[in-house]
């Protein structure tokens, strides 16, 4: 926090400000705060909740963090689909722990969003009414047990590629949440890889199941990086604010380069005849992505859009009486009618 002036909210002394409560020297009004904010971002400092920030920066962060939180809780569904059918007790324990981690990530991320002046309730309401989105990848179904492995290897792998740079995001609470999320995601990615490896080296039926899952999840995973750079609506501003550090296409290339040798080690192929190493570019070339499919799924026409959001709404609606009871109980016994539901848990 070297540029103390940047961490100054009008009328509210920022913690960590080195010059106490003084405003930016010689400046008054929003322009001074804007300049101080710009300087802090340029100096790679973290913006903290009580610091002044442009409204558009705040709105962008709320949108992005909420979308990320929603993706965690919607993302529980396709994997929870296999908890009750997991084929060994070891795999069942790993899968339950993973789905639990996703609920935990949802909790940190909603909390990070709340530091920007919103509430979990408000964000869930926007998710349920379709005003905020979640990652489109979860609108694909998990048809076989191997899909659990493919999600871990490819979907979590793509998520990590996207999220590791977010650990250096300019907004402090989001960056810190991402450090923990990324550590857990890398476990999930390795567990998914290991699940697929066991299938690939198993019976012919298991191998075929693994290959089929990779065939179905490969392209949607590449779409997770978002539209090509020249069509990405929010990228330029987010890069300038250092919320985003790398372009969509750059991250996608990085992901493909990581996956190709891993697929070879797995003994599985990737469903792209154009995929080959380009010596000159130092990257793999890959075939065209079907952006029509991407846009259709985004619009709500994917295989599971309706199912995912209905299940989420149903769980929320059916749980209303439980949350109301917790709030009523808290109001009776502490005098505070905080909405509750904090069950005893060690996580």
């Amino acid at each position: 926090m070297a540029t103390a002036a940047a961490h100054q909210t009008a009328g509210t002394p920022a913690y960590g400000a080195q010059d106490g409560t003084a405003g930016p020297a010689g400046d008054t009004g929003t322009d001074a705060y804007q300049r101080a904010f710009d300087a802090a971002v340029a100096a790679d400092e973290r913006i903290e909740p009580r610091d002044w920030m442009p409204d558009a920066y705040r709105a962008t962060l709320v949108r992005q963090i909420a979308q990320h939180a929603h993706s965690e809780i919607i993302g529980m569904q396709p994997e929870a689909n296999w908890i009750t059918r997991a084929p060994s007790l070891r795999r069942k324990a790993i899968l339950m722990a993973k789905v639990q981690d996703e609920a935990g990530h949802g909790l940190y991320l909603y909390s990070a969003a709340e530091t920007l002046g919103t509430s979990r309730e408000e964000l869930l309401d926007k998710l349920h009414s379709g005003r905020q989105k979640y990652s489109s990848i979860f609108n694909y179904p998990t048809l076989t047990w191997a899909d659990v492995g493919a999600i871990g290897w490819l979907v979590d792998g793509a998520a990590i590629t996207n999220q590791v740079p977010l650990c250096r995001c300019s907004y402090g609470p989001y960056a810190r949440a991402m450090v923990r999320v990324c550590k857990e995601e890398s476990f999930h990615q390795r567990q998914g890889y290991e699940l697929l490896l066991a299938l690939s080296r198993g019976t012919p039926e298991q191998h075929a199941m693994a290959q089929d899952a990779v065939n179905r999840w490969w392209w949607p995973s590449l779409m997770m990086f978002g539209p090509p750079d020249d069509e990405s609506a929010h990228s330029a501003q987010s890069m300038a604010w250092k919320i985003k550090r790398h372009s969509n296409d750059e991250l996608r290339r990085r992901f493909v380069d990581i996956c190709v040798p891993q697929a070879e080690s797995l003994g599985l192929t990737l469903p792209d005849p154009d995929l080959k190493w380009n010596e000159e570019r130092g990257h793999h070339d890959f075939g065209p992505i079907d952006w029509t499919e991407f846009r259709e799924v985004l619009k709500g026409n994917g295989p599971c859009n309706e199912q995912r959001i209905s299940q989420r709404r149903q769980a929320h609606d059916e749980g209303a009486w439980v949350r109301e009871a917790a709030a009523a109980h808290a109001a009776k016994h502490t005098g505070a009618g905080r909405s509750g539901g904090t069950g005893a848990t060690r996580s």
Partner: peptide, 19 residues
């Protein structure tokens, strides 16, 4: 309890029941 995953009344209970 595993059948609750994705259906709990509040996010904290997703974590607690899975635990």
């Amino acid at each position: 309890l595993g059948e609750w995953a994705g259906h709990a009344p509040v996010l904290e209970e997703e974590v607690a029941l899975a635990n």
